[in-house]
Amino acid sequence: MTLQTVLLVAAALFCVGLYGAISQQVVVMVMMGLELMLNGVILAAGAFWWFLSPAPDGQVLLLVVITAMTVEMAMGFAVATLLHRSRGSDMTDMATDLSR
């Protein structure tokens, strides 16, 4: 177990999540892709902390990443609820006007 091997695993997780975030049509599945990307970021941050500088600051950074994941999920669920209520659908293709 080296820094490089752990980072390669983290990169694989990130890219699988990236594929999901780009390709999926259902909002909840897009959120799953984003979650998987953050999963990779958590693993990479843990590896950087352990192999480069095992000071408490790195653990605080990891806490912030985990918090970001929580915020993303909460807001994603709220937007999905709003979309479903107003349009009766939770498909991304039917919410393209949100980008305008």
Binding site: L7, A11, A12, F14, C15, L18, S23, Q24, Q25, M29
Partner: peptide, 20 residues
């Protein structure tokens, strides 16, 4: 329920190659 499957796979694969 997917769209742009090939493009998504290409983007993910390219990103992994750059990161690796």
């Amino acid at each position: 329920m997917v769209h742009g499957k090939r493009t998504s796979l290409a983007v993910a694969g390219l990103t992994f190659a750059v990161l690796a």
